[in-house]
Design a binder for these strands. Structure first.
Lengths: 355, 355
DNA sequence: TGCTAAAAAGTTAACGTTAACATAATTTAA
DNA sequence: TTAAATTATGTTAACGTTAACTTTTTAGCA
């Protein structure tokens, strides 16, 4: 740091103490409203604090108290309403218990994961909730953090550790049901947009898709599974309409394009719908489409999007509650896993049974 | 806090020092890579640090150093891609300079603004960027923060203070041009969705709309200006499709509905488009529509949305740079204002000139 | 009146780190 | 070889707060 100078100093407890003529402990008592202080002193102190524009130094306070009543949340794709909903629920649960929340973004790499973890640990947050996708570098660093006794809960991230709780929607079942729904409607050529067969092996939604096909003895055509390779992509996650759009165009250019598509999430589905429209095809008559998440926009697409609803709020709330338990318990807590049910929401984008 | 117990202690510098048999200062030097340390000692120290799973205590460090190299960003509506883009740009600029970013959400009240400011100040962030809408309580608290010398930059928030920089898109001009565009196409009855005439007086986009009408001597019909009252709303901002949908339906139910609509932002526009579709009307033939922001989705709506593009990244970058200057300068910096140009992006949702 | 309890303060030390200074060991230069 | 420079390490104090303890003052009451 070549740049040394920082601004004018803030008033401290002892500045106030000096100005009033008491000990700083007395001022501390006034500020925190603890212990005995005479009404007279209290008023003098408050007056002085006000005049000096006193603001308590949280660093010193937290250093002394050994906890910060702050939790960090690491999000991948903040513009996905899923993340937002999650963050909102986490925040509410924490706020109700007197904790505050700092959000860090980690968009697409282990490096960013690590930066996020590091800055949170650095600020001595009392615990961390992580909702980014798993990756080797991040996992390794994370393991170190957990082993130094920082309470951690992961949401939807494939991270195995005896001291880390896990909350996730049932992506596998959700993916299965979405695909099953398309099969029930008579579709046989069903595409998947949002991952590759090689790269997306950890993607439960894709696995659900594959297992539904398998169950109905539909052969898996790897050309029907398309998506950008995440690990390579430098493009922020939110632009998944792009991915959906591109992916759909790839599918449409096949000699034998699918009659239905399961998109990895609603944004991807919206992008795909746009590509279908552009190609002059109709939804659901020519191509049926299912998304995932049930973001609030899903009901406003035209036609309204069939999708798998995941309980985002519940996920956030549960994760926050589990974390708080970890933070507040003095005993070791064994890993808990909560896989939450999803619900298929059928709207017009999948239409009715094909003849 | 009735719940006292926190977890097992972390290793400290002196734990390592003791275990290796050196002074903690030496360990500090190894950890920070500063000053002279013999290769032999360095290795011993690193080994011990590793074994003890040492992690430096940022609270103590920052307390001593008197700065944290951390900046806080307060966002209103995190699921709006606008916020995301902003956050991303801010983060990138900061990261390049070695700062980390904590994001706080403040969704719809002065109370939440204050909670967010408070927790950031509490953690002694070196500066704060604020991108929430102005409100009395928040402004008052903010003023206090600024007066205690915390560097602050606001984005698009109407906050006047000699020591606070201001970055904003030119909402007034943008709103004007959006409306002008509709007028140029021959529209006379033009609605505005996203604010009330009473409550939205501070909304520059609405003012731009009004002034464009005035310029062309089109009488202002207050029934054509519709939106939920923000201050009252308990509904999170992101569901602005809802607002657009509801608002459009209100406009459609008028005896003499508008032939064109300017929506406060793209999400609102998308909601409005959905309502227009549901009513069996065509865009742009029956009703033309303009949004604001040019989120990535805008090009994927059907028809693609005419909108006003604001330079979100630039806003974020500038705000971050200004903040860094404030943080690093030892001299007082006078308020700087940067109003950034917006650009009308004409797509199909406004069609061609009416006959 | 004296004695106890309650109220109102004050004192000390510590949280974990590092800046600033001091000292000791080693190397270099002349 | 001896002083000066370099390298390696140590000591002290302070960042601002508060837990834990101590002391002083006031109030209560038998």
């Amino acid at each position: 740091m070549e740049n040394g100078k920082r601004k004018k100093k803030h008033a401290t407890l002892s500045d106030i103490a000096d100005s009033v003529g008491v000990a700083s402990m007395t001022v501390s008592r006034v500020i925190n409203g603890t212990g005995y202080v005479s009404e007279e002193t209290r008023e003098k102190v408050l007056k002085a604090a006000n005049e000096l524009n006193y603001r308590r130094n949280g660093l010193a306070r937290n250093l002394k108290r050994q906890f910060t009543e702050t939790v960090g949340l690491v999000l991948g794709d903040i513009s996905n309403p899923y993340s937002t909903e999650l963050a909102r629920a986490v925040r509410k649960t924490l706020l109700d218990r007197g904790f505050s929340l700092f959000i860090c973004i980690s968009e697409h790499s282990a490096k960013e994961d690590i930066v996020a973890f590091e800055s949170l640990v650095n600020h001595s947050v009392d615990g961390i909730i992580i909702a980014t996708r798993s990756n080797d570098g991040g996992d390794k660093y994370l393991r170190g953090i957990v082993e130094s006794n920082v309470p951690v809960v992961v949401i939807g991230r494939d991270f195995q550790h005896e001291d880390v709780d896990f909350v996730s929607p049932d992506n596998l079942k959700g993916g299965f049901e979405a695909t099953q729904h398309l099969i029930d409607l008579g579709h046989r050529r069903i595409g998947f947009i949002g991952a590759n067969l090689k790269g997306g092996s950890s993607l439960k939604r894709l696995q659900g898709y594959l297992s539904a096909l398998k169950k109905h003895n539909i052969e898996i055509d790897e050309r029907l599974v398309t998506g950008r390779n995440e690990d390579v992509s430098e493009v922020p996650g939110y632009s998944t309409e792009e991915i959906g759009f591109e992916g759909m165009n790839r599918l449409l250019s096949l000699p034998d394009p699918p009659t239905a598509v399961f998109a990895r999430n609603d944004f991807t589905a919206i992008g795909a719908m746009s590509a279908i429209n552009d190609a002059g095809l109709r939804i659901p008559e020519d191509i049926a489409i299912v998304g995932f998440d049930d973001i609030s926009l899903a009901i406003r697409t035209s036609p309204p999007l069939t999708t798998v609803r995941q309980p985002m709020r519940l996920e956030g709330q549960l994760a926050a509650e589990m974390l708080l338990e970890r933070i507040e318990s003095s005993e070791k807590i064994s890993r808990r896993e909560r896989i939450l049910n999803c619900e298929l929401i059928v709207r017009e984008s999948t239409g009715t049974k094909r003849s």
